[in-house]
Design a binder for these strands. Structure first.
Length: 359
RNA sequence: CCGGAGGUGGCAGAGCGGCCAAUCGCAGUUGACUGUAAAUCAACCGGGUUUUCCCUACGGAGGUUCGAAUCCUCCCCUCCGGA
């Protein structure tokens, strides 16, 4: 029986803390599904350290290595897998996380995916069409400077059908327009090329073996779900929520704590060691605001804090919007002080008999 | 007490007689998102159930005007400089 536990929810709901305690109880290992925690040296700002750490400071033992951290003997994978200056994408994530999860399973442990990045989670669990279509750096450079209108025109010329498929918001989104053009222009290889020594992710192996028989080779474009199609596979998705005001309070407090923990110095160190301000801005949220601070656009810590809190509120809202559409999630309100035991009960049921989503 | 600058929607900050319920930004709300996703993009954002409709609004009270957030008078308050 193949089982995969997923903990999802917006930032500051305590996903990691919960996942750690569940891992201990159910003999699991975590896989972080977070688009920023996977960067090396972005530690405080991305909250790699579990919140409990501050309280139980002395009891915690943390070990770090490329690709994972270990907190009190529990492995957290997909931390520190990429240099912060480089760009890591969903494609990389699916590939890496997939093999990590496979390894956890081979060791007979329960894989627990801790997800804050909706797109990554979706790609990992369900696959993403066009994931095999690579980035075309030259094209992107060429298109990036253009005004939206030009991009719109260009896409319409390439494929009016594609243009019509897009919604009104995406039609004004340069990033989406560029990717759409990129996909149209790319001539996909029959099967994605692997670099030397690279192992094809399970999802892709499946995709290839499953469809290769049919004449229509274009199917490589349609990434087959990594796990959803596997018989006997069993997900359990646990979602964490909190009333809006409480969530904002938690976020605000966290920002204060992180400043206390040295988040500003972390940013300075990153910058001193060559991480550009521009790149920091791309990384968003705390690092984006911190970039402004280092540049002197923001002068006081008070201001830094306020701006950061506001940005993160917005981020949490976007996550909530995304996760609303996520299917088959068992949602728990973290302000219910029985929620942990409720979660544990659910997992026990799931482990033993398998939970019927319909129930 | 004198001189100077101001008081505008949650914040910040434009507007300086009609096109102003009031630019822009932030915050807030909702949403989009098929390789940058902590990114990127969209809509809404005084109240009234939608409205080319009504109401309450630009410190307060009066006034001038067909018409004022915008002009005048007085009052209250804030900030800077001088006593």
């Amino acid at each position: 029986m193949l089982k995969l536990l997923v903990i999802l929810g917006s930032t500051s709901t305590g996903k990691t803390d919960l996942a750690l305690s569940l891992a201990k109880k159910f003999n699991g290992e975590l896989t972080s599904c977070d688009s920023r925690q996977l960067y090396k040296r972005l530690d405080i700002g991305t909250g790699k350290m579990p919140d409990q750490f501050k309280i139980l400071n002395s009891k915690f033992k943390i070990e770090k290595s490329d690709g994972w951290w270990e907190v009190n003997g529990i492995r957290i994978w997909m931390y520190d897998v990429c240099d912060a200056a480089k760009q890591y994408t969903v494609y990389d994530f699916v590939k890496d996380a997939d093999s990590v999860i496979g390894d956890i399973r081979e060791r007979g442990k329960l894989p627990i995916v801790v997800g804050g990045t909706g797109l990554y989670l979706k790609a990992l669990l369900e696959g993403l069409p066009n994931l095999a279509c690579p980035v075309d750096e030259k094209l992107r450079k060429e298109l990036e400077g253009l005004p939206v209108e030009a991009l719109q025109e260009r896409l319409q010329k390439s494929s009016f059908k594609r243009w019509e498929e897009m919604n009104s918001s995406d039609r004004q989104n340069p990033r989406r327009l560029i990717r759409a053009i990129e996909i149209l222009l790319s001539s996909l290889p029959a099967s994605p090329k692997l670099q030397r020594g690279e192992r094809r992710p399970a999802c892709q192996r499946l995709a290839l073996s499953g469809r290769q028989g049919s004449k229509k080779q274009t199917s490589v474009r349609n990434w087959i779900p990594a796990y959803a199609g596997m018989t006997g596979f069993n997900f359990l998705k646990i979602g964490l929520t909190a009333p809006r005001e409480i969530l904002y309070q938690r976020i605000d407090k966290r920002v204060v704590d992180r400043i206390d923990q040295g988040m500003i110095d972390e940013a300075k160190r990153l910058n001193d060691s060559g991480l550009s301000i521009k790149r920091m801005r791309q990384l968003g949220l705390e690092y984006g605001v911190l970039a402004d601070y280092l540049e002197g656009k923001i002068t006081s810590q008070e201001e830094l804090m306020k701006i950061m809190q506001g940005k993160i509120h917005g981020f949490a809202r976007r996550q909530i919007t995304w996760f609303k559409k996520e299917k088959d999630v068992f949602w728990f309100d973290i302000t219910d002080n029985m929620f942990i035991s409720k979660v544990e009960d659910l997992i026990v049921k799931w482990y033993d008999k398998g939970v019927n989503y319909a129930s």
